[in-house]
Each structure stands twice: as C-alpha cells, then as structure tokens.
C-alpha cells in the first residue's frame, strides 16, 4: 500500500478521547521508519497526512460494547524536507501497528571530472 493519503473529514466527533501512540523512529541508509502502536485500529481507519513538513498520523477505534470510540493521534515535524523523497512515502498497517517509510533522496554520485590539457 502506498499512500500519502490525505483524509479530510473523518466520521468521528472531534471530542473523542485521544491518546498519543507509542512510536519508534529508526533510520537506515535509505529511509527513516516510523512505527506507531495503534491497537484496535484497522487499515481503513488510519490516516497519514503530510502537510508542509508536518507528518500527522491518526487512527480511530469505533465504539464497541460499553467502550467509547477513541483516537490515536500524533504529529512529527520533518526538519529538513529536502532530504526526503516525500512523494514516495509509504505506509502500511499490520496487527494494530502503523509503519511509515520516508525514503531519503538518492545522493548524487561522485563524478570524476576530466581535466583537459591546455
């Protein structure tokens, strides 16, 4: 699933109890990875939004039984957007964990410059 999904209106009132999900941020040579614990959130109820260097993750859990609806939400600032290829951000959801991959821009290769004789 590839998405820089922007979900505008969500079917939840604004006053649902909101928790900040626990996250893990790690980095490899190719990308920054963000994993967030969102137990009870299905793939259809999560949104990942990227707006002007601010990454917002939201996950909703519908009410069930006597448990009221609730929401996970957290925002992150990307301090140097130029380092990332933000058009190819990927997100996936598995067993209540959201994983977002922010790929880094490929570094330009070093080139040998030929020196021509005078």
């Amino acid at each position: 699933m590839t998405s820089t999904e922007v979900s505008t209106t969500r079917n939840q009132p604004a006053n649902v109890p909101t928790r900040s999900p626990r996250v893990e941020v790690s980095e490899t040579d190719e990308a920054i990875w963000l994993s967030a614990d969102m137990p009870g959130v299905s793939r259809d109820d999560v949104s990942v939004e990227l707006d002007d260097g601010v990454l917002t993750i939201v996950g909703d859990v519908a009410a069930s039984g006597s448990r009221p609806a609730r929401r996970f939400r957290r925002q992150f600032t990307i301090s140097d957007q130029a380092l990332f290829d933000l058009d190819t951000v990927e997100a996936k959801m598995a067993h209540g964990v959201l994983e977002v991959r922010l790929p880094k821009m490929a570094k330009p290769q070093a080139r040998q410059i030929k020196i021509s004789a005078a």
Binding site: R22, V23, E24, V25, S26, E27, T28, I32, W33, S35, D37
Partner: peptide, 14 residues
C-alpha cells in the same frame, strides 16, 4: 521486534 539491526534508533517508546 521487526526492527532492522543495522538501523539507527532515534526514538524507542515501544
């Protein structure tokens, strides 16, 4: 942990 052993962890609340 699904984390890549080579990855550099910046934040680990999980």
């Amino acid at each position: 942990s699904s984390g890549d052993e080579r990855a550099n962890l910046h934040r680990s609340e999980r």
